[in-house]
């Protein structure tokens, strides 16, 4: 009972602290929690902002899907083949520490400020954790398991798809979960840099116009979006890897 209610209590507690702090500070740029919450339906009720949200989510979904679709096979191949690993490793090592949003100016220069640039940045943000975890997962697959498959007559491609992939799935999904949150982060940052549409655009327009209640409402909405997406994904993950050993007794999510 307490465990189920704990996340709600935490949120409520934060709101109370916020409310009190803003009442004490009395700053224009720091609306009270109630004001921010009251602004949420206004934002969500606006047709224009809904179009923006839809555009954001569409880019995020495409960036995430393409990222996962490319990164899983790449990571798994890297984990099982020294040749593939040494081919891609230098490239990834260079890209890895670079903040993806920092690439945004160059990408905008080449590809414009439209969907393609933003989706590309999301794709880059998603790819690295998924590649890394797929790689680690594939490397950890027991050799004897692959031998057992080989003795049954599975070709090396079949072993990659039918043994390495399922065996590494718990690790892959951990990467996807990180990737999903990174997709949200890169989605917002890309829209903050290339301000043309999207949730990040609404947020910064509101900031420019001094609509601080909208700014805070947007932060709550985007935060809630992250929490809901993560919780949904965590449910899916738990379903898919029911067979694997439990790693935590306390689930690190709101699902």
């Amino acid at each position: 009972m307490l465990r189920r209610a704990a996340p709600l209590l935490v949120c409520l507690g934060l709101l109370v602290v916020w409310q009190l702090a803003s009442l004490v500070l009395k700053s224009d740029s720091f609306p009270t929690a109630l004001e921010a919450i009251r602004a949420i339906p206004v934002v969500l009720g606006d047709k224009d902002s809904l179009v923006n949200f839809a555009a954001s989510l569409r880019r995020m979904a495409i960036g995430f899907a393409v990222g996962v679709a490319i990164s899983i096979p790449l990571g798994l191949s890297m984990g099982r083949s020294r040749a593939v690993a040494s081919l891609f490793n230098p490239l990834l090592m260079v890209i890895y520490p670079v903040p993806k949003a920092a690439l945004m100016p160059i990408i905008m220069l080449w590809l414009g400020v439209g969907d393609i640039s933003k989706t590309l940045v999301i794709f880059l943000g998603v790819s690295l954790p998924v590649i890394y975890h797929s790689f680690e997962g594939a490397r950890a697959v027991e050799e004897k398991m692959l031998w057992s498959g080989a003795a049954m007559g599975l070709s090396s491609t079949q072993r990659l798809v039918r043994i390495v992939l399922p065996a590494a799935l718990p690790e892959i999904l951990t990467g996807c979960r990180t990737g999903l949150v990174l997709a949200l982060i890169t989605m917002i940052t890309s829209e903050m840099i290339a301000r043309q549409s999207g949730a990040g655009n609404i947020l910064f327009n509101a900031l420019d116009m001094g609509q601080y209640d909208t700014v805070f409402a947007m932060i709550i909405i985007v935060g809630a979006m992250g929490i809901v997406l993560d919780a949904l994904f965590e449910r899916l993950r738990a379903r898919l890897v029911r067979w694997s050993e439990p790693q935590f007794d306390i689930p690190l999510s709101f699902s």
């Binding site: 031998w147 057992s148 067979w243």
Partner: peptide
């Protein structure tokens, strides 16, 4: 057909 000390079952 091999049988290994580590079992090597498919856990999924």
């Amino acid at each position: 057909g091999p049988v290994f000390q580590e079992f090597a079952l498919f856990p999924w």
